[in-house]
Design a binder for these strands. Structure first.
Length: 551
RNA sequence: GCGCCCAUAGCUCAGUUGGAUAGAGCGGCGGACUACGAAUCCGCAGGCCAGAGGUUCGAAUCCUCUUGGGCGCACCA
């Protein structure tokens, strides 16, 4: 971005400390105060230093203020409260900052925090044993927004979906397929223990028969199950993929567990742990020394019957991620797996990856309500509520935005009636309406035969109302807000910010006319309104929610 | 029993590496459309931040304990 005031301010403060004979800190941090009376930027530096220099915080702050060299954009500096240093910038500075929003346009908010570093976000990764459900929709909303936000702040972020097309879950699906196939051929075949009861498997079996006939029944069991299972997985994954695409989620990589196993990566994972002395034999099994890396107990890698546990391909998979060059791997898991996180992190540490290279985020459950009453979601009885139905009922924008109005690790009540209602009760329309209003103002300008001002040259000095200066201030907070959302992996901050921006814009619109006979004032206000529109659009885009011109 | 997460307005939740007077939506009550869109706006009411200690210039935020919830603790995935 153009001129970054905080670095200029920091330099000034450091210079002041030097001339005042005070020690220099490693860094000066600036925050944007909540209250306008507290200035544009504030630092708590004096309070942090007070103890070390044995002076009262206010005295330190006063010393800094008195020795501060003149800075062009600084109107005045105040010492306030227990020792805050409040900096008030000139109105000219703030207005010129608005111009930066306008010239940056759809690039406004982007930064280079990530320095192009490669990070991965793996999310949803549902078992390919049936349709996606509501929690998957939540994970998809969070994961996809995270990818978009990380990209905006300069990371090379990739979204990935892990397909569990091997192992026991796969076998259970294959057995269900086999049974349904027999039933379709008229045999009396009971569903085996553990096989998936879902009715969709009946349709899949019929589809297989239509395409490939019944010859598969003559194959040996292993090959037979393999073929049927793979057919089912391909169909189910294709459906999941299409549904996610409609939801606005495009993955960079769909990663197959089967290919991982076939490549010998699982054996290699065990070998690497052995080489590092972190695997040992006991009671006829092979164990990972997880307790050496913070886990509660050691974990079995290979069972005494010779089969690997689920843990091993998972280790191999994560190892593969790091081999592909990711400096940061972020996994979104369901709450039922949170106990699994310590051993996964332990395994990565055992294999030489830094503690924080793997980040595991827990996406909490979604409780579905209708008119305030809980909708039961029982997978066993096959009456789970599918993601497809959710999209059909509430739509992509409302669904995504609603999922992003909570922290990802907080349980969420999703009230279908409330989310469907197109009123002020629903925050997504509140934000979108603000954007549509901006668009309609420019429609009005065009209808009048007026032309848009040249943003490079327009005189912004007519902007003087408190609401106008407040709106600019909010627009200027957008880039640092994105960085905070990226650093903490909390996309919901963007959703809240947008609601607050809309909540500042609507009253302004209601109280003051943008287009008037005063040409200079109109041009300046159009610039402000355009700025609001730009940030609303960019912000909604990062959440995967549309920014409509009309509603 | 051990571990993780949580407790903020009637309800659902925010609260910017610990910052100045704790916010929003919904719900409740009362108002505003002959000018750019009323899916909007204005006003009122609503709080012992579960409780008790501690850390310090300062705590909803960090530490300890208590109470009350959710989840996890397999040679399952």
């Amino acid at each position: 971005m153009g001129f970054d005031v905080t670095t200029i301010l920091s330099e000034g403060v450091l210079k002041a400390l030097r001339t005042a004979g005070l020690p220099e800190p490693g860094a000066v941090t600036w925050e944007v105060p909540r209250e306008a009376e507290h200035g544009d930027y504030a630092t708590n530096l004096a309070m942090l230093m007070a103890r070390a220099v044995k002076q009262s915080p206010r005295r330190v702050a006063e010393a800094i203020r008195d020795h501060l060299p003149p800075i062009e954009v600084v109107e005045r500096v105040e010492v306030a409260g227990p020792g805050f240093l409040n900096v008030f910038l000139t109105l000219g500075w703030r207005r010129e900052a608005l111009r930066e929003v306008l010239t940056a346009g759809e690039g406004y908010g982007r930064s280079h925090l990530g320095q192009g570093r490669l990070v991965q976000v793996e999310f949803v990764s549902a078992n390919p044993t049936g349709p996606l459900v509501i929690v998957n929709a939540r994970a998809a909303a969070v994961g996809d927004a995270l990818v978009r936000i990380l990209r905006a702040v300069g990371f090379d972020a990739r979204g990935e979906y892990y397909i569990n097309d091997a192992g026991n879950q796969f076998l259970n699906l294959a057995r269900a397929m086999e049974c349904r196939l027999r039933q379709a051929l008229g045999e009396v075949a009971p569903l085996p223990e553990g096989a998936y009861p879902g009715e969709y498997v009946i349709d899949l079996a019929k589809a297989y028969l239509d395409l490939h006939g019944a010859d598969v029944a003559k194959l040996p069991e292993g090959e037979r199950l393999d073929r049927l299972g793979q057919f089912a997985v391909e169909r189910i994954v294709a459906e999941q993929r299409e549904l996610l695409r409609q939801y606005g989620v495009e993955y960079d990589v769909w990663f197959s567990e089967r290919t991982l196993r076939d490549s010998g990566a699982t054996d290699e994972a065990i070998r690497l742990l052995r080489e590092r002395g972190q695997a040992f034999d006991a009671e006829g099994a092979i164990w990972f020394r997880a307790t050496a890396f913070g886990d509660d107990k050691d974990r079995v890698l290979v069972k005494s019957d010779g089969e690997v546990t689920y843990f091993v391909p998972d280790i191999a998979y994560h190892l593969d991620k790091f081999r592909r060059g990711f400096v940061k791997v972020i996994d979104l898991w369901g709450p039922d797996h949170h106990g699994y996180a310590p051993r996964m992190k332990a395994a990565m540490r055992a294999l030489g990856h830094p503690e924080d290279a793997l980040e595991i985020l827990i996406v909490q459950i979604v409780r579905l309500l209708r008119s305030g009453e809980l909708v039961k979601m029982s997978k066993r009885r096959g009456e789970f509520t599918a993601m497809a139905e959710l999209l059909e009922e509430v739509g992509r924008d409302a669904a995504r935005f609603t999922f992003l109005t909570r922290r990802h690790d907080s349980p969420l009540d999703f009230d279908l009636d409330l989310v469907t209602r197109q009123t002020s009760e629903n925050p997504v329309y509140y934000v979108q309406y603000a954007h549509a209003r901006v668009a309609s103002i420019f429609d009005f300008v065009r209808e009048r035969g007026l032309s848009e001002p040249d943003w490079e040259r327009v005189d912004l000095s007519p902007l003087a109302l408190p609401e106008e200066l407040d709106l600019i201030k909010r627009l200027l907070q957008f880039p640092s807000l994105l960085e905070a959302a990226a650093r903490t992996y909390e996309p919901h901050r963007v959703a809240y910010y947008l609601q607050e921006l809309a909540a500042a814009f609507h009253p302004y619109y209601n109280r003051h006319r943008v287009v008037s006979d005063d040409r200079a004032l109109t041009a300046a206000r159009l610039a402000l309104v355009r700025g609001v529109g730009i940030v609303l659009r960019n912000g909604l885009g990062l959440l995967g929610v549309s920014a409509p011109e009309k509603m």
